[in-house]
Design a protein around this nucleic acid. Structure first.
Length: 561
RNA sequence: CCGGGUGUGGCCCAGUUGGUAGGGCGCCUGGUUUGGGACCAGGAUGCCGCGAGUUCGAGUCUCGCCACUCGGACCA
């Protein structure tokens, strides 16, 4: 590509409606443009990056023997109703009516339709296993899109689905995808971790996430040197037993205006750990009082699972005040009148402090024998420096962006949608499924978050929009011009992805633009061509070399390999 | 959905007590320049987010709406 006649622009200043580094750099460098909240255009340069990511994914998918197909995005709503997922998605699904008032949705994910596709083939165990996938758009009406390409409403994604006879076979298919994913992310050159995760709306048996490590990540990764790695959503807590104490006499104490654990702990001059907080949750329209130690946070994912619920939300202030008969902040388990769930640490706490269900009062010296509870379980978040459940060392946290995930679905969808096969003994069995996603836009944004400096983006070579740029310093100098053109053609003939900056601009402008858009290798053609020398600069390290014109192609080839 | 902020040439922003819409960057023309975002001279580009209202007069005041954005809630 020659820049002088290409669709290309850059901005010198940050744009105001992109707060993240990656969002700003991608917009300034003409990779993307926002046209609405969570909706982006991919400009020529950005599309090149996206296509390179796409091709790596496609190659590795095809290497596993998976077959690519393409699904529509405009989908009849009733299919999601049959599968039982219409309600799960709720308002995060875009829905619309056609001219006959029939309900359609924009696909947020395609399990149901891949099952439809699979039915075309699957009759017998001899038809299994196989894996089919697509690379296409997904639509989700996010409550709050943000962070540039990280959380958007229309996004480009690869989703694959495996179909097997049984759990053993599924295990192999899953493994195969898992290994392919590692190859994909390694080739892309992204810094990632694999963590155990929640199965969420997908349901199923096992979920693992591939997380790009960056500070703007919305997920918390719980990690240990022993290679334990888990999303905080599902990271199990080791039970914390306190020193056994003799039960003291329970007492009602006046604690005016001490609503939060923070306030009450200051007021009574006791450490947070001596308190138990009571949060009232509404899970599938039923209220539960949930108790955790004062120094801990509730984990809603764990809580939801414990009671086998689907929809979970904190009760409103009004609801809490009605249930506790007190102002917000004084809820406690004693004489409460709704179901009680306690965190398993509470069993090993003694003489703790709880709200008294009476405005401005707390109980001190409460013990678990003082009230009746309905559920016990691990319902709290791991804290940094907690003990690793696997090896006993201290855990540490990092932030991550989910760029890929792998699910063992089992027979959830095949049962719901009637995807069955006949086995050797002529009995009808449901197909065992897995599904596997990768978010391409998120990869792009995460890579930029991980690879940049004051001058702009630093693309890893395998997904850079161009591998090499040639900067022609003086386009009116015939020697420089002819050497630049010759080199440009030579690199193209060597299958190197090259861009020629032959614009009639000052050198500084071109250097800055090439830095901004992050091309890994720059060849500058200037005065030194008289001595048959060109300059090679490495974007990442800023190293510069003078290279003989005749050697430059070889040198570039070496670097790229 | 709750709370805060912002909407003014392509981009970033200024705009006094209401009185002819400004600057920088970019763009066009000419000239001088040419290895890290040059300089001089001239020039073009505005539904001041949208709609009502107050006023002789509204970018500015009032009301309503919309969009974007941040924090939260939410989120395969």
């Amino acid at each position: 590509m020659r820049l002088s006649d290409s669709f290309f622009y850059t901005f010198r200043e940050d744009v105001k409606d992109e707060e993240t580094l990656s969002g700003n750099l991608l917009v300034k460098s003409s990779m993307i443009k926002k046209i609405g909240n969570g909706i982006y255009m991919y400009m020529p340069l950005g599309l090149k990056v996206l296509k390179k990511i796409e091709n790596i994914i496609r190659e590795e998918m095809n290497n596993t023997g998976a077959n690519e197909l393409l699904m529509p995005n405009l989908l009849p709503e009733d299919v999601y109703i049959s599968s039982g997922r219409r309600d799960n998605f709720g308002s995060s699904m875009f829905s619309l009516k056609d001219r006959y008032d029939r309900s359609l949705v924009l696909g947020p994910t395609h399990e149901e339709f891949f099952v439809e596709a699979a039915k075309m083939k699957v009759k017998s165990y001899k038809d299994l296993p196989f894996n089919i996938y697509q690379i296409g758009n997904k639509y989700r009406d996010e409550p709050r899109p943000r962070f540039g390409l990280i959380r958007v409403r229309e996004f480009f994604m690869k989703d694959a689905y495996s179909f097997d006879t049984d759990a053993n076979s599924l295990d192999k298919s899953y493994r195969k995808m898992f290994e392919a994913y590692k190859k994909i992310f390694d080739r892309i050159g992204i810094d990632y971790r694999i963590v155990k995760a929640d199965t969420g709306v997908m349901g199923g048996l096992l979920s693992e996430e591939f997380q790009a490590v960056t500070d703007i990540g919305e997920d918390v990764l719980v990690l240990c040197d022993c290679n334990y790695a888990s999303n905080i959503e599902v990271s199990e807590c080791v039970i914390n037993k306190e020193k056994v104490e003799k039960h003291k006499e329970r007492k009602l104490v006046h604690t005016p205006n001490a609503k939060s654990i923070e306030e009450i702990s200051k007021f009574l001059k006791k450490d947070k750990i001596k308190f138990v907080k009571t949060l009232i949750y509404k899970i599938d329209e039923v209220f539960y009082a949930c108790l955790v130690s004062g120094d801990r946070e509730i984990n809603e994912t764990k809580l939801r699972k414990l009671v086998n619920g689907t929809k979970i939300e904190l009760a409103s202030f009004e609801e809490v005040e009605k249930i506790t008969n007190a102002k917000i902040g004084f809820a406690g388990p004693i004489d409460l009148g709704i179901k009680i769930i306690i965190d398993n640490d509470i069993l090993y706490k003694y003489n703790y402090i709880v709200g008294a269900n009476k405005t401005d009062y707390h109980y001190i010296n409460v013990n678990t024998s003082d009230f009746i509870y309905d559920y016990v379980g691990d319902i709290k978040n791991v804290k940094e420096f907690d003990i690793c459940p696997k090896c006993g060392k201290k855990l540490y946290f990092k932030n991550g962006i989910e760029i890929g995930n792998t699910f063992k679905l089992g027979t959830k969808y095949s049962k719901a949608l009637g995807l069955n096969y006949l086995d050797e003994k002529n009995t009808l069995k449901p197909v065992a499924m897995g599904c596997y996603g990768i978010g391409l836009g998120r990869i792009m944004a995460s890579v930029v978050e991980q690879n940049n400096d004051d001058n702009g983006i630093i693309w890893p070579i395998n997904i850079a929009p161009f591998e090499v740029c040639i900067v022609l310093i003086d386009k009116n100098d015939d020697l420089q011009k002819s050497i630049a053109n010759a080199l440009y053609n030579n690199l193209i003939n060597n299958k190197i992805d090259v861009i020629l900056d032959d614009r009639d601009l000052r050198p500084g402008v071109k250097f800055n633009d090439m830095d901004l858009i992050g091309i890994p290798y720059r060849i500058t053609i200037g005065k030194k061509v008289k001595d048959n020398l060109v300059e090679l600069k490495i974007r990442k390290t800023s190293q510069c070399f003078d290279v003989h014109v005749n050697d430059i192609v070889t040198k570039i080839n070496e670097l790229i390999k």
